[in-house]
Computed example of a mutant assay.
Amino acid sequence: MFVRAYLRASTSAQDAYRARQALGAFAAHHHQKIASYYSENASGASPNRVELRRLLADAYAGDVLLVESIDRLSRLPTDDWKRLRTKIDAKGLRVVALDLPTSHAAMQKTPGDDFTFRMLDAINAMMLDMMAAIARKDYEQRRERQAQGIEKAKAEGRYRGRPINPALHRRVSELLDAGLSIRKVAQHAQCSTSTVQRVKSMNLE
Rank of each mutant, 00 (worst) to 15 (best):
P163C: 00
T102E: 11
P163E: 05
L120R: 10
L176H: 01
M119I: 15
R83A: 14
F115D: 15
M131C: 10
D79I: 09
D114F: 10
R142T: 08
E174Q: 04
R94V: 13
I70W: 01
E174L: 04
A153H: 01
M126C: 08
E174K: 01
R162S: 12
T116Y: 03
A125G: 06
A167C: 03
I134M: 09
A155K: 15
S74M: 08
A133M: 11
E140W: 05
D138I: 06
K109G: 15
K154L: 11
R142H: 12
M119A: 12
R118V: 11
S103V: 10
A135T: 04
Q146V: 13
D99P: 02
D99V: 09
T102A: 10
K82G: 04
N165K: 10
T102C: 06
T110Q: 13
D79V: 14
Q148W: 11
I70R: 06
M127P: 01
R75K: 05
R170H: 02
V172Q: 02
R83L: 15
L176R: 05
T116A: 13
I182P: 01
H169G: 03
N124F: 03
T78P: 12
L176M: 07
G157D: 05
K152F: 02
M127K: 03
E174G: 01
T86K: 14
R83W: 12
T116F: 02
M131R: 12
R145V: 05
A167E: 08
A90G: 07
F115N: 08
R143V: 14
G149F: 03
R94H: 10
V95W: 03
S103W: 07
L100D: 00
A106C: 05
D121M: 02
D129L: 02
T86P: 05
D177E: 15
I70P: 04
A132F: 03
A125V: 07
D129V: 02
P111F: 03
R85Q: 15
T86R: 14
D121Q: 15
K87C: 02
Y139G: 00
P77M: 06
K137T: 12
M127A: 07
L93E: 08
W81N: 01
A90W: 10
G92N: 05
A106H: 07
N165T: 11
T110C: 09
N124Q: 12
A147R: 15
A105K: 06
K137R: 09
I123R: 09
K137I: 11
M126K: 08
L98E: 07
K109R: 15
S173F: 05
Q148F: 09
K91P: 00
D114R: 11
